[in-house]
Computed example of a mutant assay.
Amino acid sequence: MGRTGGVPDKLERYRSKRDAQRTPEPVPDVSPPSSEGNAFVIQEHHARSLHWDLRLERDGVLVSWAVPKGLPADPGTNHLAVHTEDHPMEYLTFHGEIPKGEYGGGSMTVWDTGTYETEKWSDREVKFVLHGGRASGRFVLFQTRGKNWMIHRMDAPARDPFPPLDPMLPTSRAKPPRDASPYAFEFAWGGRRLLVPIDGGRTTAAREHPWLRDLAESFGSRTAVLDGELATLGGAEILLFYDLLYDDGRSLTGEPYTVRRAALEALELTGGHWQTAPSWPGEAEAVRRAAREQGLPGVVAKRMDSAYEAGPSKSWLFVPS
């Protein structure tokens, strides 16, 4: 149904892209009535490529933009926002699996929902204030060319800057510390150090290691900087993570090792190419003996009260096996 009472059907384009018999998405068969609501929804959409769909209620429909990197976290960075077709109001709560091969095929979840205030709305510029559970603040969408727009954050939220990507390095000594109780002991894997920054479901480390795209995408909109080591185990290359420098907008470099380690373990990082490296508080000789038996170069003793500091540090000690 293209028109009702001579009024253009705002969902005509939406319907033309979908088959109600093949997708679980809402496909209403009548033109939506006009409304004055101010709801919004942001959906995390794992389609051909990860993106977030921002939808603002306007005159009975959800005016929509696909934002590949999600909402910008600060005013210093603008993100691409691709203007898509208007969606029905039922999309405020839609989540599910759109079948492969259908338009937008992939998993969709509700990332946030709430209300918004309109400061300006024109064909080329939309200024608004979000009031959601996860997303809040002042934003502006502005058209650049055709369906391509940009989204800019107009206020500055409380978010720590990313730490410098310089690893903390152990100093060497011949024997473990006499008192092992202040230390956690980890294997020295003999691999190559790799820090992995994740932002907007993407990581620059994937340029060299494309398989890291899957890890970054699994983080969704969560920001992180992971510290680990590329090692060869059983003939396969695996990335072993043993520290977390940044988590969801907060720098952890000033926190003690125990806090960083607990936050890292809470991420439950397990995949075909990566996992969380084990750590044993206070167990110097047993870990050193296990390293020797496995042909590893040694162990690293890490003071459990130490902050993360770039470069060589006496808080981390390499002890050969």
Rank of each mutant, 00 (worst) to 15 (best):
L80I: 06
A81Q: 08
A81V: 00
V82W: 04
E85V: 09
E85R: 05
E85N: 02
E85P: 02
D86W: 04
D86A: 07
D86E: 02
P88Q: 08
M89C: 03
E90N: 02
Y91G: 00
L92C: 06
L92G: 13
T93W: 00
T93A: 09
F94W: 06
F94K: 05
H95T: 02
G96N: 01
G96Q: 01
G96C: 07
G96T: 00
I98V: 00
I98M: 04
I98N: 00
K100Y: 10
K100L: 10
K100A: 13
G101P: 02
E102Q: 13
E102N: 15
Y103R: 07
G104W: 06
G104K: 04
G105H: 04
G105T: 02
G106Y: 10
G106K: 13
G106T: 04
G106Q: 06
S107L: 14
M108H: 10
T109Q: 05
T109L: 11
V110Y: 05
V110T: 00
V110F: 05
V110P: 03
V110A: 06
W111Q: 05
W111E: 03
W111G: 04
W111A: 00
W111N: 07
G114Q: 13
T115L: 11
T115Y: 09
T115S: 15
T115F: 11
T115C: 07
Y116Q: 08
Y116K: 03
E117Q: 12
E117Y: 12
T118C: 05
T118R: 12
T118N: 07
E119Y: 11
K120V: 12
K120C: 13
K120Y: 14
W121N: 08
W121V: 03
S122G: 15
D123T: 10
R124G: 09
R124T: 09
R124M: 08
R124D: 13
V126E: 14
V129M: 12
V129W: 15
L130D: 02
H131G: 12
H131Q: 15
G132A: 07
G133Q: 13
R134T: 09
R134F: 11
A135Q: 12
A135Y: 15
A135H: 13
S136L: 06
S136K: 14
G137N: 03
G137T: 03
R138K: 08
R138M: 00
R138V: 05
R138L: 04
F139P: 00
F139S: 04
F139Q: 03
F139R: 03
V140M: 14
L141R: 01
L141N: 02
Q143G: 11
Q143A: 12
Q143W: 04
T144C: 09
T144G: 07
T144L: 11
R145D: 15
R145K: 10
K147V: 12
K147A: 10
N148K: 06
N148L: 12
W149Q: 07
M150C: 09
M150G: 08
M150A: 14
I151S: 15
H152L: 01
H152E: 14
H152N: 11
R153S: 12
R153E: 07
R153L: 11
M154Y: 08
M154S: 01
D155M: 05
D155T: 00
D155Q: 01
D155A: 01
D155P: 02
A156H: 10
